[in-house]
């Protein structure tokens, strides 16, 4: 944001390359925030959640979001992040964009302000700002030109990516898809309709899809197995931990949205597996596209 102010303070001259690049990044971030959060901004359950979400759980979600954005920005920020300072600036910018987009569109849809107190309005915006801010950061990576300078360097960085980064990206992907569906009534309904056999099949489907996405189908950016290497290495080192992370993120999302209170352990397990399916797809996709 500081950059934008500096740019505004320039004596009416044309924007130099760096400012233009930052503003382009900002526009992409705005587009990303909208593209990724509009489905949630137009979901009724998300508006109602703002009325009853536990304040402490909301605070945890919003607090956890910040270091997650910083880490994400460190890899795929508005501008090629070179250090933690720049990553922090990018993360805060994305968070700010997320809040602006959420507040703006909730006002546009006339969801805020109708008998709502300030506290519920803030809760409604805060809930939506989390996926919107992730979208803002992802927007830079997803909406950028493929022939843009620096992309080659990005690829090089990706190739050197450590195991921790891979797992982190899976968490972000899982959380992102999770936030889109976790608050909906359908998650509970699918869990209630599922018999234990269905639940077991959902686990198997999630794992197979996850592994298939990244290894068998060999999308662009997907991992290729080294010649002669067994299928089991990527399966045990990436797919299974990725699925466990997807389940943990699902459980966290269900806890945040108060879907695990006063229900049995068996029911919590079933709902987590149901939500784990989109989370697993999100985690696998994140490894492909981020």
């Amino acid at each position: 944001m500081a950059k934008a102010d500096e740019c505004g303070a320039k004596d009416g001259g044309s924007l130099d390359g760096e400012d233009r690049r930052f503003l382009t990044g900002l526009a992409r971030g705005l587009a990303g925030a909208l593209l990724f959060s509009l489905p949630m901004l137009m979901t009724m359950e998300m508006w109602f959640l703002g009325l009853y979400v536990h304040p402490l759980r909301l605070l945890v979600l919003c607090t956890v979001n910040l270091p997650m954005l910083v880490l994400l920005a460190h890899y795929i920020g508005f501008e090629k992040s070179i250090g933690w300072g720049a990553a922090y600036r990018d993360a805060i910018t994305a968070y700010g964009l997320g809040i602006l987009v959420s507040a703006g569109f909730l006002l546009l849809f006339n969801v805020l302000g109708q008998g709502a107190t300030m506290a519920t309005a803030v809760a409604q915006i805060a809930l939506q700002a989390v996926p919107a801010s992730i979208g803002a950061l992802l927007g830079r990576s997803q909406l950028g030109d493929s022939d843009e300078e620096g992309d080659e360097e990005d690829e090089g960085e990706k190739a050197e990516a450590g195991y921790g980064r891979e797992l982190f990206m899976m968490v972000v992907g899982a959380l992102f898809l999770n936030l889109n569906v976790a608050p909906t009534e359908e998650m509970n309904l699918i869990a209630f309709k599922a018999t234990p056999v269905h639940t077991l099949l959902m686990v198997v489907t999630s794992i197979v899809l996850m592994h298939g996405f990244v290894y068998a189908v060999q999308f662009r950016g997907g991992h290729r197995r080294a010649e002669g290497a067994g299928w089991w290495r990527p399966f045990f080192v990436y797919t299974i931990p990725g699925y466990v992370l997807a389940l943990l993120v699902s459980l966290y999302a269900l806890w945040t949205f108060e879907r695990v209170d006063s229900v049995s352990l068996q029911q919590i397990m079933t709902t987590t597996v149901v939500l784990g399916l989109p989370a697993a797809i999100g985690a696998a996709s994140a490894r492909l596209i981020l």
């Binding site: 797992l167 045990f236 466990v244």
Partner: peptide, 9 residues
């Protein structure tokens, strides 16, 4: 990590 997660699954 793979071993621990396999046990969990």
């Amino acid at each position: 990590t793979g071993l621990l997660c396999s046990l969990l699954v």
